[in-house]
């Protein structure tokens, strides 16, 4: 028996909106510690890891570990039927081939339940070691989204370079080139507008903008995004999900042929 009640149901709507274009089908893993997901995109270039800790739910019952295979597009369709301020409850029986999403309005005058068929999904679970990064950039998520969107009108790839001067996003295309430099800005009065760069050593990596733009679908979840870079690792683009967890996108770089 699984029963997860999330007062901030809007968070789950935003999580699904940020996942559904990258991954079609995925297993949600439910355990005593939380509700999580790890899935690769179909080309095995990008990976998303989601964690919503059990403490973040108003009520969290998970009698035994369960893996719920879901089509994320269909799940997103159902969650779109919830209002942003609805309380969302996810329910599933151990042997069931379906999951129920229950939506309650804040004043309890409307209650809806949507049942969705589950799928059997052969998922490939990757071991992701804890890593030390050469550079970690924290910046406003909306700014990062804007940069990725702007650069993708000019080129297909972005070079992200971190030096002690700041973080530089560069692209090149048929019509020309573009460089955007963001300098460190602690913004003590408005921490959500800060750009903080922690650099062990300079690093420069190239990534496909198509994936970066897909990751920025998570922008409504968090004011800040963290971009962790190392020369010998995929980049990690992380958005915090309120106080309860995170959504992390991993993207393998491109190299000169």
């Amino acid at each position: 028996m699984l029963e997860l009640r999330l007062v901030q149901g809007g968070l789950l709507k935003k999580v699904l909106e940020s996942l559904k274009d990258l991954v079609n089908d995925a297993n949600f893993d439910c355990s005593a510690s939380g509700f999580s997901l790890q899935a690769m995109d179909s080309s095995h270039v990008a990976l998303v890891a989601l964690l919503l800790r059990s403490e973040g739910f108003e009520h969290y019952r998970c009698d035994r570990n369960l893996s719920l295979g879901m089509n994320l597009n269909n799940m997103a369709k159902m969650l779109k039927c919830a209002a942003n301020d609805d309380i969302v409850t996810i329910k599933a029986d151990d042997a069931s081939d379906s999951v129920t999403f229950m939506f309650e309005s804040p004043n309890q005058d409307k209650i809806a339940d949507f049942e969705m068929k589950l799928m059997d999904i052969d998922s490939e679970h990757l071991g992701i070691p804890e890593a030390e990064f050469q550079a970690i950039v924290r910046m406003p998520s909306a700014e990062f989204a804007r940069i990725c969107k702007d650069l993708s009108t000019i080129g297909d790839t972005v070079v992200i370079s971190v030096t002690k001067e700041g973080v530089k996003f560069s692209t090149r295309g048929d019509i020309g080139t573009a460089n955007i430099v963001c300098r460190q800005n602690p913004s003590i009065d408005k921490p959500e507008e800060a750009t903080i760069i922690e650099m062990e050593e300079p690093v420069s990596l190239t990534f496909a903008l198509r994936y970066m733009n897909s990751f920025t679908k998570a922008t409504p979840l968090a004011n800040q995004v963290t971009i962790s870079l190392s020369a010998d690792l995929p980049v990690v683009v992380e958005y915090r999900v309120a106080e309860m967890g995170y959504i992390r996108f991993y993207l393998a770089p491109k190299i000169e042929e």
Partner: peptide, 14 residues
């Protein structure tokens, strides 16, 4: 522009 690396280059399948 350039070759796209795969995640399997970095992460092992569990």
């Amino acid at each position: 522009a350039g070759a796209q690396l795969l995640l399997s280059r970095y992460f092992q399948l569990n």
